[in-house]
Design a protein around this nucleic acid. Structure first.
Lengths: 205, 205
DNA sequence: TAAGTCATGTAAAAAGTTACATGATTCT
DNA sequence: AGAATCATGTAACTTTTTACATGACTTA
């Protein structure tokens, strides 16, 4: 069915640069055929634990990936329910994704509102500040425990698979390790700051 | 001089919510009187090491902070050079900032393109992947050393001041500690991934 | 029967980045 | 003389978020 690439008005070697969101979607489709709804779900509990998007961003992007020939879709008319589109990544999409994966990302300063607040901590009431940082430590602790349990589940499900570089399981594993490391660090720092807010405020041993 | 609040068409207790950028600017002005240019410089080597902005964003925001009465400016006609505007935070601005500081930030998933790439690492050539992650480790290592030396400089300059919660020096110190912690974690993780890409590729002991 | 999930889109607003525009001064 | 720094703005574009819009099916 698939015919050769239609004559496109693009000079050889030049490619429309895809926004990161496009690659996020391809990343999901490289593992499974999915509907826009499915992808939305995966990008909500963020894919790789470090990227997120709303459905209003995903549907248009899927359409343009389709136009670019990086994905295709089949219309599935499941009995009753509204017809849905199941997307599948193409060879071109897979190649494009594989090339992007090993390209150094442009250096971007991560934005962290809590750290920005910390910069003006000297203006704050110490007790309220301590409260804030203990609460934030709690938040990070909760994500930490969640990701740790996901790590454990992954180890149980996949076992030796996790040692194979070419396995998606290893890739997921690596992102989870990143997530837990970052979360642990965040907890430690928040606690450290909180302790310095009111040295004799709470939880004396 | 200061007269009562001019009759504003705002119901009591309700305030126009300021974008985070507004607080970033106020954070800088809480420490010093600055021109737009100065603020731009501080937000380039990002303020608190976790927030950045371009001048095209800053000048309009300064104007609206001015309109909102959170900052004022004096026009300085320095001989020769173009007249510049030196901004100063107002009492209202300081209060607003202080209130914001202890307000829990909305939970936002940080975006990290490298982690997103990692999610599709299984598609990549192991050697290229190892190269990427070693390079990234290097980047993080460089920021780490830089921030560590800034930490050392700060300790020397401020000494005991760093123990005073109400001192701006402590606030800066805390953000730097966060930065170094995050950078160390990033280096460790990048190295860990790289080692798993080509187990026998480089730097065997 | 009401709430929740599946399912797909568009519209509008906000935030952020890149490019355009100008011009004096200072340093090499 | 040319490059870098000081200095301030606007315009255009991209990306992200929030809201609008609709509707069938499922479960409590």
């Amino acid at each position: 069915m698939a015919s050769g690439t239609p004559p496109s008005a693009r000079s050889p070697g030049e490619e429309d640069e895809l926004p990161t969101l496009g690659y996020a979607i391809l990343s999901a489709l490289a593992r499974d055929d999915l509907t826009g709804y499915d992808i939305t779900a995966r990008l909500r509990r963020p894919i790789s634990y470090y990227w997120q998007a709303a459905h209003s961003q995903i549907y248009p992007m899927l359409a343009s990936l389709d136009t670019a020939g990086l994905v295709t879709h089949t219309t599935v008319a499941s009995s009753g329910r509204r017809t849905k589109k199941r997307y599948r990544i193409t060879e071109a999409g897979l190649e494009r994704l594989a090339r992007w994966v090993v390209t150094p990302p442009p250096p971007r300063i991560p934005r962290d509102e809590l750290v920005l607040k910390t910069y003006s901590l000297w203006l704050a009431d110490p007790a309220k500040a301590a409260e804030l940082f203990r609460a934030q430590a709690g938040e990070h602790r909760r994500t930490l425990t969640q990701w740790e349990s996901e790590l454990a589940a992954l180890r149980e499900r996949c076992g030796a698979e996790l040692d194979r570089f070419a396995s998606p399981a290893f890739a997921t594993y690596a992102t989870l390790v990143r997530g837990t490391g970052a979360a642990r660090e965040a907890v430690a720092w928040c606690t450290w700051v909180a302790d310095r807010c009111d040295p004799h405020g709470s939880t004396p041993p």
